[in-house]
Design a protein around this nucleic acid. Sequence first.
DNA 1: TCCTTAACCAAACAAATGTTTGTTTATAAT
DNA 2: ATTATAAACAAACATTTGTTTGGTTAAGGA
Lengths: 199, 199
Amino acid sequence: MTLAAKQTPAKRANNRNDALLDAAAHLFASKGYRETTMRDIAVISGMLPGSIYYHYGSKADLLLAVYEKGVDGLCTRFDAAIADAKAPWSRLEAVLIAHFETILDQSDYARVLIRVLPDHLPEITVSLSRLRDAYEGRIAAAIEALPLDPGVDSKMLRFLLLGAANWSQTWYRPGADSPADIARHFLAIVRQPVEASDG
Amino acid sequence: MTLAAKQTPAKRANNRNDALLDAAAHLFASKGYRETTMRDIAVISGMLPGSIYYHYGSKADLLLAVYEKGVDGLCTRFDAAIADAKAPWSRLEAVLIAHFETILDQSDYARVLIRVLPDHLPEITVSLSRLRDAYEGRIAAAIEALPLDPGVDSKMLRFLLLGAANWSQTWYRPGADSPADIARHFLAIVRQPVEASDG
DNA sequence: TCCTTAACCAAACAAATGTTTGTTTATAAT
DNA sequence: ATTATAAACAAACATTTGTTTGGTTAAGGA
């Protein structure tokens, strides 16, 4: 046995860690953090409640892992969206569409980022906030790059768009307007004057 | 003893029902429904946990009472705002300012309406939704009355403004921009084109 | 003054919840 | 085949939680 041999911890094939994270993400996104019990998560992931603690030290740790995966997914999508579009406004549109699609239809992990806020868990607020900054910063940058009218504060524009986007999780139901349509409509409202022209 | 004499239940002066509601509203608004315990509420309102059940049958009933008082307060403010302003856009501005001021600075009861959503409590979702409709309907009406560009869906405009407003509770901190300033800025972004004009 | 009862107290209960502890299984490397 | 250990099981534990039950006090009407 060489010294280097010990560097492979030999992870097993039937590790249900992924199923565990998926279950936690789904429940956190659907019911919220506080109303999701370790027993709920255990049932869906085909485990016993105590077994979860082999993978994660606490319920909060589990949420942190979900949060991290959610941020990673969003950042990856954002970077792809930014790479495809060059002009500032089309870049923002691409990022916004990616955001809406991810938090409304595609990823339980991303949905958790909107439903469970850092302020709701005083003990791990800083860790959660640090993670969020990674993807919120990309949206901020996309908005900061816009050629804006001097009367418009870019921070306020960001709050407006991001707030509307995040809140959409409370009223959106699949079937009607697609997430991309919603994103484009919101952006259109901001770019053009909404007031009817006379005549 | 006449038959009519029994119609006065003789409420007492030192009834702490108001303090109880205030405490519940404050905690629900600050920490959320699920993370607020009956013991927390009891401590603040100077009561023992069990005593709360003399006034309200359950924790959910307590939330319903808070909800109702919150809606009443908002509706009263909205109606006053609508009465003062006649033109459609200035009406919406007045309503929006009232909304921002109430949910950000003035009323714990109104803050609960934003923080605790009907979907979060499956057992009383319908009751909560019915209450919300009362004040959301007033905002909807104010937006529906606007002379809008044909390309703009009034429902989407409502979602945009209301979402941004409600989400502001997550980032607003007293001291910087006032709630009224935020309301006016958001409305300005929607009315004027935000894009910088060439030249 | 007496008597009703609004408004609380004091104490417990049952269920739910996050977590721990000791044990077992089965896989990968030797 | 043997062994180490990843990955789970089985069962409990300590709190926390919403709620209930029976007793107590004092305000207001008769």
